[in-house]
Amino acid sequence: MKINTYYINARLFPTILTSIPILSLYYFGFSEELIEFMTFLEGYKWASDITLSIATIYFLVQINRLISKELFQNLLFKEELNMPTTNFLLNSDSTLAKSMKLQIVQKIATDFNIQLLDSNSENNNEEEARKTISSAVAQIRNATRNNSMLLQHNIEYGFVRNLIGGSVLAVIISIFNIFIFQYTFSNSFAFKLNLVFLCIYILPIILSKLLINKYGKYYAKILFEQYLKK
């Protein structure tokens, strides 16, 4: 596990924020049982090397990333073929100024020997045009990997995407908690608290398309701007 600025801000922080329903389940429901379980684990050598909490957080980071990338990003953008970084370089897209797009196309051809399709070819085979652009964008990312401004926008996009993914799990746990605190561990405060959690965490899911598109477009614009400055 590589700990860096991106991991901490874009993966770890969203996981912590969306782990609150699990913590409420522990605190109000299973705290005594888990304490007994942890006491039991302390007798084993491997338990001193890695704590249950660290393992749980690492597991949740991977789950959140999987949900956000596979369920939301790939569903909305069909992997990278419909991402803003691809759309912006299509001849049919008018987001970027024509002069800027021409500079990017020429620089891609010079730097990576990749020729993007012209308007006629794009109209005849848009999927091939998108695949070519996607390959070029991957090279652009590699070329601008150490750009601090781009890293910041990449972190912002990753944070939002992973927050949405974590919210899915948070909603599921909140619903589970509502039933648990209503019928198993009767606790009015915990029941109402998880109702609030449910309302909070369902919002990023409802707004997922808007948020991912918005931050994806911010990232795409900065990516191309910084690439031209390189």
Score class of each variant (00 low, 15 high):
residue 20 I to H: 05
residue 48 S to E: 07
residue 99 S to Q: 15
residue 105 V to N: 14
residue 105 V to E: 10
residue 172 I to L: 11
residue 180 I to H: 01
residue 23 L to G: 15
residue 38 M to G: 14
residue 31 S to H: 12
residue 152 Q to R: 08
residue 132 T to C: 09
residue 106 Q to A: 13
residue 116 L to E: 00
residue 34 L to S: 04
residue 50 I to R: 06
residue 158 G to Q: 04
residue 51 T to Q: 12
residue 104 I to M: 06
residue 122 E to F: 06
residue 157 Y to G: 02
residue 14 P to I: 12
residue 28 F to N: 00
residue 87 N to F: 00
residue 129 A to S: 12
residue 132 T to G: 12
residue 163 L to I: 13
residue 222 I to V: 11
residue 201 Y to E: 05
residue 87 N to G: 00
residue 19 S to M: 14
residue 97 A to F: 02
residue 2 K to G: 12
residue 36 E to V: 07
residue 5 T to G: 15
residue 64 N to R: 07
residue 127 E to S: 04
residue 174 S to R: 01
residue 215 Y to K: 13
residue 71 L to Y: 05
residue 196 V to M: 14
residue 121 S to M: 14
residue 220 A to D: 01
residue 117 L to S: 15
residue 204 P to H: 12
residue 76 L to C: 08
residue 13 F to E: 10
residue 152 Q to F: 11
residue 44 Y to A: 06
residue 135 S to V: 11
residue 64 N to Q: 06
residue 44 Y to M: 12
residue 221 K to G: 02
residue 77 F to H: 05
residue 125 N to T: 00
residue 68 S to I: 03
residue 36 E to H: 13
residue 86 T to Y: 03
residue 8 I to L: 10
residue 209 K to N: 07
residue 51 T to V: 12
residue 36 E to T: 11
residue 151 L to S: 14
residue 88 F to R: 03
residue 116 L to I: 13
residue 48 S to L: 11
residue 175 I to H: 05
residue 9 N to E: 14
residue 70 E to P: 02
residue 206 I to V: 11
residue 46 W to S: 14
residue 53 S to V: 07
residue 93 D to Y: 01
residue 9 N to W: 07
residue 39 T to W: 04
